[in-house]
Structure formats: C-alpha cells, structure tokens
C-alpha cells in the first residue's frame, strides 16, 4: 500500500505485520472486491437517484441473514435470497420504470419502499430474538466485522462480483442512457424497464455481498458515498465511475488498516473516511462553483416566459 514512513512510523513494517495474519488478508481481499463493486454500481445508483432503493436492498439483507441463521441455513443464502427478492419487488412497483432526470423521480414509490424497509428491520429483530443464542452476532450483521471472512466467502464474493461487473459492462450505454433520459431511450428502442430491473438485481447482489463484510447498515457507506464524492469532482461518466471505484477501494483499505490497530470497529473507520472524502469534495465543488459565478453569467431562461404580444 505505501512504501514510506512518516515521523518515525514504520508504515511498511506495519503493513507487513498486518498482512501476516490470514484473517486480515481475507478481510482485505473481500473488502477490495466489495469496494470495486460498490463503487461502480453506486455510481449508477446515484445517477439514477435510486439511493433509497439501494439502502432498502441493503437493509432487507438483515432479516434474510437473521432468518436463515434462525432456520439453521447459511447467512449468505439469506442475504442473497432476500436482496434479490427485494429487487424484483421494487422493480415491480409501477413507478420504477418511469424515473426521469429532473422530473421528481420517486413519489409514492419511496413511501412504499420506506414502509417495506421498516417492516424488514422489524422482522430481522424478530428472527434475532427467536434464535436466542444469536444475539452476539447482531452487531456483526448490522455493522460488519473484520474477523469473520472465510476463504469460501472470498471465493463466493469474487464470483458474484465478477458476474455483477460483467453485467454492468454489458448494460453499459443503455443503462446510462435510460438513467439520464428514459423517454428518449425508450423511443430509441432501449428496453428501459428491463434495463432498470437488471440493474436492481445487480445492485441487490452487490448489496448482499457487501453486507457480509460491512454489515447491512454500513453497506451504504460504500455504495453511495464514493459515488456521490466522485460526482462532485467530475461530470464525465467514465472518469466519474473510475474515481468512485478508486475512492471506495482507498477508504476500505485505509479503514481496515486502521481498524486492525485500533479498538474501534471497521465500519466506523470506513464510513468516517468516506464521509471525510465527501466533505472535502463538496467543499471543493462549492469553491469551484463560486469561482465560476464570478465570471459573467450566461442569461438563464425564465421558467415560464411570458408570450410576446
């Protein structure tokens, strides 16, 4: 990660020490996969204004995992099953195919999603209390843990992540087109509804995968914050997407490294780092925009002009 030392701190030595633990190696591997995935998918999620849907998908994983554990099944199965089912349910909501840039996006839909989200959380708590011996795992389910990633989980994540990225690559231009301008995309023959559903499914797999590392509540730190940060730094699609991935990977690596040497949980560090980058980017954007306003402004069209007599 870094080949230098500052003020007597032996960073190289620290990193070598950290990598000598197999569980840390696995945490870094899993974290990297999750970060790349979340950064890329999050970029489109933010562009499509589907942050709320993404958050809900992440939260829905919690009752899935808790329920699966209660029934004696694997938690992964619960995460993936519930997230995918949730994605199909959101895609079936009438307004989902109709989101349009600048036209308000979600109205009733967000109310329905919010209602389902609250119910999902409540079910999760029910399952946790039904399975009495499981309460210690609650924090892990919600906020993630650094120690629990097995080799098998890393492999499963790698397969799921590669599948998601390939799907995203294939969706590519039509996804961007229908995210920005769904009416024109539809007229040009893009199956807007299908693209939207496919995207939600990819989002669900990413959320389920990431939940197992960062916990259900903190998936969001990786899905939305790097993308929101990147979009404040550039308005170009490809650099924006790559920047989002880069920020997600950087905060994950740094967060895991710091968490290893500190008593505080990994989720806190990753989220705090992501949040800091977001604040910096927002400040940068404000500064740039303020500079831009000093130049003579172009006349802005009035909202609804009067008609000439």
């Amino acid at each position: 990660m870094s080949g230098f030392s500052i003020g007597g701190l032996d960073l190289v030595g620290d990193v070598e020490h950290l990598l000598s633990y197999h569980f840390m190696l696995n945490a870094l591997r899993a974290g990297t996969i999750v970060a790349v995935l979340a950064g890329a998918i999050g970029y489109f999620m933010v562009l499509r204004r589907q942050s709320f849907a993404g958050h809900t998908l992440a939260v829905i994983g919690f009752p899935g995992a808790a329920g699966a554990t209660w029934l004696g099944l694997s938690a992964s199965l619960g995460y993936y099953g519930f997230c995918l089912a949730g994605a199909l349910a959101i895609a079936a909501l009438p307004a989902a195919g109709r989101l349009t840039a600048g036209l308000g996006g979600y109205g009733d839909e967000s109310a329905v999603i919010g209602t389902v989200q609250a119910f999902a959380l409540a079910c999760g708590f029910l399952f946790v209390s039904l399975y009495k011996g499981f309460l210690s795992g609650l924090t892990g389910l919600l906020f993630g843990s650094i120690t629990g990633v097995s080799d098998g989980q890393v492999l499963a994540l790698l397969v799921a992540g590669a599948g998601c990225l390939l799907a995203l690559l294939a969706l590519g231009r039509p996804l961007l087109f229908s995210s920005i301008d769904s009416d024109v995309a539809r007229a040009r023959g893009v199956p807007v509804r299908l693209v939207g559903t496919a995207f939600l499914l990819v989002l669900a797999v990413a959320a389920a995968g990431a939940s197992q590392i960062t916990g259900s509540l903190l998936v969001f730190a990786l899905l939305v914050t790097p993308a929101a940060t990147a979009s404040r730094l550039t308005a170009r699609p490809l650099p924006g997407l790559l920047l989002s991935v880069l920020i997600a990977v950087a905060v994950t690596w740094l967060g895991e490294g710091i968490a290893f040497y500190s008593p505080y949980p990994i989720g806190f560090w990753v989220t705090t780092l992501a949040f800091s980058s977001f604040l910096l980017a927002t400040g940068y954007r404000h500064g740039i925009d303020r500079l831009g306003r000093r130049r003579p402004a172009t006349p802005r069209g009035e909202r609804r002009g009067e008609v000439a007599a």
């Binding site: 562009l47 961007l176 087109f177 170009r236």
Partner: peptide, 18 residues
C-alpha cells in the same frame, strides 16, 4: 452531474449494449 456533450453522445450510440 453529467456533461452536455455526454448527453449529446447518447443520441449517437446510447442504445447499443456494452
């Protein structure tokens, strides 16, 4: 947060997969 030129470009090949 997307540039005007990107929006124009979508008209060219935005409907093609990949």
């Amino acid at each position: 947060r997307i540039r005007g030129v990107d929006v124009v470009r979508m008209g060219w090949d935005g409907d093609r997969w990949g």
